[in-house]
Design a protein around this nucleic acid. Structure first.
Lengths: 130, 130
DNA sequence: CAGTATCCAGTCGGATACTG
DNA sequence: CAGTATCCGACTGGATACTG
């Protein structure tokens, strides 16, 4: 007899809906490009505003501000202002912010591993369609 | 006044950047709400179009179509059309698509664990600001 | 240096209507 | 049932200019 093929799909057993919802909401908050970038560069240590702008390339002044405000509001980043002239403001990850690095790294590894696969799939798809 | 600033740059600056870029690009592709939802519901097995619409609540006809096209193009989902009347089209995860579940679950677990923390941080932040 | 405010072009996505 | 096409309001985010 033929054995049933056991597909190696890790299941999301019971409360998958609940999980998806929670994940969806979190992704709305931390899943955007700049948030990830900020967490990434801050994972190596605290940075000042303009340092961060240089580290992350291509982010506008405005967007970095908004992203940092949002992260600060969510308790993932701390903002420390020194009353010097010129002003100096340091941003750093909180414990909660640091804890986000691990899952993001998991996704990053996936991205690195599967990017070639995706790129090829796209190329083939576009071949067929065009 | 002459100042020489020696910036304490940690090692592996390029690979970190590279990782962030890769992750950022992947998040642009798979990091949106509906993509995550689709992968989530398909993780339990193949589904037809309208089944999926019902499983995922709140997704519009149009967005589900676009999301599925995009996933198909990236080789994460297969589309199988049966020439019956009425038409029947089944969507399923590819191996690449399935492999995405693990890192997404890592993020999902983080979301579930830290949602209360975030919510409280927000509440406190809004307290202080308002 | 760090941050705010304003403008506005481009994009996103829902609603709707129509086809095989 | 599954998919396409069109319209259009809402939101996004960059550029720019100004403040402490």
């Amino acid at each position: 007899m033929k054995t049933t093929v056991t597909v190696p799909i890790p299941e999301l057993p019971e409360s998958d809906h609940h999980n998806c919802r929670a994940l969806g909401q979190i992704l709305d908050r931390v899943g955007d490009k700049w948030t990830v970038m900020v967490v990434g560069v801050l994972s190596r240590g605290p940075l000042r505003f303009n340092q961060m702008m240089r580290e992350i390339g291509g982010v506008s002044h405005r967007m970095l501000t908004l992203t940092l405000r949002s992260l600060e509001r969510d308790g993932l980043v701390t903002r420390t202002a020194y009353a010097t002239i010129p002003p100096k403001v340091e941003y750093a990850l909180t414990d909660a912010g640091s804890s986000l690095i691990e899952p993001l790294r998991a996704l990053s590894n996936w991205a690195i591993e599967y990017r070639p696969v995706i790129d090829q799939a796209r190329a083939e798809y576009d071949m067929r369609v065009i």
